[in-house]
Simulated scan of single mutants.
Amino acid sequence: MTKDTPKNKTGKVLLTTLAGAGVGALAGILLYSQKGIERRRKFRNLRVDHRLRLRGDWNQLKGKLQQAYIQLTDEDLTYVEGKGHELVSRLQAKRKRQIVKLLNAL
């Protein structure tokens, strides 16, 4: 084992400090340059909004869904304002059950 001399310790501290400053400067340039700001803006726009926003009368929309997908019942299409995620979860579960039935029948 070798002992670190004070000169050796100073060199390591200096090297570490310079490396940290370099990484910080690079991060600052990438994040706060004009291109970095544009990248962040593009990334924000890529996010998908999964909230359900229904337009129009729910009963009309429900009727259209039942015409398009006859297997859906009134219970499947029960919608409570602000709880669209529950409706979507029920529809996904029903779809999964149908796929499993189909696969089991093969």
Rank of each mutant, 00 (worst) to 15 (best):
L18C: 03
I29Q: 00
R55F: 00
L30F: 02
V88S: 12
K3L: 15
T78P: 01
R39G: 06
K7W: 14
K9Q: 14
N104I: 15
R95T: 12
R55I: 04
R53T: 06
R40M: 06
Y69W: 08
I70K: 13
I29L: 08
V23Y: 00
L87R: 15
Y79H: 12
D4R: 13
E86P: 11
S33D: 11
L54N: 14
T73V: 13
N59L: 13
R51S: 12
A19N: 06
R40Q: 07
I70T: 14
L26S: 09
L102P: 00
R53C: 05
L30Q: 08
G28R: 01
T78H: 14
A68E: 11
L18F: 01
E81Y: 10
R51G: 08
E38C: 03
V48N: 13
K3F: 03
L26Y: 07
G63Q: 08
A27L: 10
K94H: 14
Y79K: 10
W58A: 10
L14E: 04
L65A: 14
V23N: 00
R55A: 07
Q92G: 10
L26H: 03
R39W: 04
G28Q: 01
R95K: 05
R55E: 11
K7I: 13
G84D: 10
A68V: 04
K12N: 07
Q92C: 06
R95C: 04
V48G: 06
R41E: 11
G22R: 04
D57E: 12
K62N: 05
Q34I: 01
A27V: 15
L26R: 06
K101D: 02
I99V: 10
G22N: 09
Q71G: 07
A27D: 00
L14W: 04
D76P: 10
G63W: 02
L31N: 02
D74M: 14
Q98M: 05
K94L: 11
L30H: 02
I37V: 12
G11P: 00
A68G: 15
Q67W: 03
L30M: 09
V88F: 07
